[in-house]
Nucleic acid binder design. Structure first.
Lengths: 150, 150
DNA sequence: CATTATTGGTTAGCATAGCTAACTATATTC
DNA sequence: GAATATAGTTAGCTATGCTAACCAATAATG
């Protein structure tokens, strides 16, 4: 056996890190979710709406895939958004398909919601030092890279 | 106005980072959640169970606070865990209060679930270089610190 | 070109998880 | 001992997840 004093086996380390990330993600979202409830739109609706606003119109299936949920689930989420006047169903040449797009109201609401959700994290970050904020930027970018590869 | 060429205003930067973190957290959990469903225990139950396993017995109220949910919500989560034989309700000297503790079965299930959830992240991490894994470790620790201050 | 298969979305029905309001039982306080 | 406070539960609402079963429209195939 090789000497491994202060070295953890890489796969154990990967698990430990995965664990920490997972836990951090859960708690971050729990905190943020509390902000969401103040405006009458659920987290799944807000997330789906953000896809339409930032990535543009999508079919229901595409939206479901982007959001990692099944079509019936997305169908209901969209129904809620349409009911609230935040999303429009447009027909296309292929009459099976829908083109889902955010309304102006939806776009406005999204920005406001986004602001609120992010506010909490941003406020906390502002209590950090300059150096720490820079580190936070690196952290966020790394996470983005990681999640993209997931 | 002061010269600010390559410097973004700190509060904007904080918002940008908050946004990235928020988005990363959502997508990380979406991916991981798919793994969860393969074993018959929901995310809220798993998360509550993990508190009991890793931090020890708790009253219902304490558990609700740790998990950032209201007591009635936790009451039902616990009911599910008890029904599944993963958690035990113990009476205490104060007969209003409960001591909730994980059973052996609960502890075993948790470890298995945890393994699966983390697996995906760990597998992805293993495709990274040594340096990147070290960076990931710093990232995870920073996030932990951030979330703790939230 | 008619039939069959595939694809896109919805509906129905189930479970989990979040909430508030209202209730019961026990402790605490005056 | 009576009033008040605290711990949990129950009831009832909404939102989100799923699968199975369905309809409508398109694509593929004989």
């Amino acid at each position: 056996m090789h000497e491994r004093k202060h070295n953890i086996a890489p796969q154990d380390e990967a698990h430990r890190i995965g664990d920490l990330l997972h836990s951090a993600a859960i708690h971050l979202l729990r905190r943020v979710r509390a902000q969401d409830r103040t405006m009458g739109i659920g987290p799944a609706q807000l997330s789906a709406l953000s896809v339409l606003v930032f990535l543009g119109p999508r079919s229901l299936k595409e939206l479901a895939e982007a959001e990692q949920v099944r079509p019936p689930t997305m169908s209901r989420i969209v129904a809620g958004l349409v009911r609230a006047g935040l999303v429009r169903r447009q027909t296309t040449t292929d009459k099976r398909r829908l083109s889902l797009e955010a309304t102006d109201k939806g776009t406005k609401i999204l920005w406001k919601g986004r602001q609120r959700r992010v506010e909490l994290v941003a406020r906390t970050l502002q209590t950090f030092s300059e150096d720490e904020i820079q580190e936070a930027a690196r952290v966020a970018e790394f996470l983005q890279k990681l999640v993209a590869r997931l």
